[in-house]
């Protein structure tokens, strides 16, 4: 798994590539919580290059959402496709988070 950040207006886009599983999920958790500590209040998790997601990854995302929620911030999920989107759908995450299907067009609004 690889994680990269870029700024997009008021948001910090966190791009996650590869596999988000029980081994790598804690890294995402730590990474995002550091951004929240640094004052970020809008995180967009970009899954364009993510090919695999298990419940450990869902737990990290949920944990980050709770952490940013306590300081008045929000998490959005972007560009999920294939089995990653299916996992979000099964687990109810599609109804729970703001979903961005095409990150670049929604960024303009």
């Amino acid at each position: 798994m690889e994680i990269k950040n870029r700024r997009l207006d008021a948001s910090q886009v966190v791009s996650i590539s590869g596999r988000l599983d029980a081994v790598t999920a804690p890294t995402l958790d730590t990474h995002c919580k550091k951004l929240i500590e640094q004052g970020e209040r809008e995180l967009i998790l970009d899954f364009k290059d993510l090919e695999y997601l298990s419940s450990a990854g869902l737990r990290s995302i949920l944990s980050v959402a709770k952490a940013i929620g306590t300081v008045g911030g929000k998490v959005a999920l972007a560009n999920a496709h294939g089995v990653v989107r299916e996992v979000f759908e099964i687990s109810g995450f599609l109804g729970m988070f703001r979903i961005i299907d095409s990150l670049d067009t929604s960024a303009a609004t």
């Binding site: 298990s54 419940s55 949920l62 709770k66 929620g69 109810g92 729970m96």
Partner: peptide, 17 residues
Amino acid sequence: LELAPESRPVGGLGIYL
């Protein structure tokens, strides 16, 4: 699966998957 992120327990999804 309907609960909001704040009130959702962090576990239990694995076996459901």
